[in-house]
């Protein structure tokens, strides 16, 4: 065991200098003993990927702006390119952030994509295609995606139930918009909300207790 004259302490772990005062210590390495293992710094490949991805996104935006101003200064198309890149970046970022829980990820993606499509629709003449087609489509796709994922991952009721309920609930929105009068093309919204309504009724009928406990858990105040 090693010893520091100044601190008057025995030193059990192996050090070149006194760990307390950084002074010279005496004694042999023999008899010293580590109590913690050497642990290498972890490298997360995901971080590098995200950095590269973010850089590429910014580069695409900048380059398209440069091309725009050099070759076609009269046409301001680069804003569309930049907006497109931002949308792709946001979706990817949300996807990565919520990667550990795919069902939660799906809910987030549904909401993000809905707002992105509203935005594009609004800035490209407000033809309401986001309400007519996008919203009902992602409504159905999300529910189907969740059913498939929970089957593949063999999730338990307490792991999927709340997301099923949220996705089913979001799927009822198209019929609300139809009723308010925003939706012009009716059949996608009717299909989506009808399907989601049945889905919710099914949950209530066949999984009543689980639905109720989940609601109680999630909403306890």
């Amino acid at each position: 065991m090693k010893y520091c004259e100044k601190c008057k302490v025995k030193i059990r772990t192996n050090h070149e200098k006194c760990p307390l005062c950084q002074g010279v210590i005496q004694g042999e390495k023999e008899g010293t003993e580590e109590i913690f293992p050497e642990i290498k710094e972890k490298n997360y490949p995901g971080v590098l990927f995200f950095q590269c991805f973010t850089f590429v996104c910014i580069a695409v935006g900048v380059v398209s702006a440069m091309i725009n101003y050099i070759f076609t200064p009269s046409l301001q198309w680069c804003f569309y390119a930049i907006a497109g890149v931002i949308c792709i970046w946001v979706c990817t970022a949300v996807g990565l952030l919520k990667r550990r829980n795919l069902l939660k990820n799906a809910i987030w993606q549904e909401i993000v994509i809905a707002f992105i499509s509203f935005g594009w629709d609004a800035f490209t003449g407000w033809h309401k295609w986001s309400f007519d087609y996008v919203l009902p489509c992602i409504g159905i796709v999300t529910v189907l995606f969740m059913i498939v994922i929970s089957m593949i991952q063999k999730l338990k009721p307490q792991e999927y139930m709340i997301y099923f309920m949220i996705a089913g609930g979001l799927g009822l929105l198209p019929i609300v918009f139809l009723w308010i009068g925003i939706v012009k093309v009716e059949y996608p919204s009717i299909l989506c909300s009808g399907f989601c309504f049945l889905f919710l009724i099914g949950l209530l009928l066949f999984r009543y207790h689980i639905v109720m406990t989940e609601l109680h858990k999630k909403f306890h105040i």
Partner: peptide
């Protein structure tokens, strides 16, 4: 240690 108490140090 100034009080004469023996101390054995280990660190990370």
């Amino acid at each position: 240690t100034g009080l004469g108490i023996e101390v054995e140090i280990s660190t990370k």
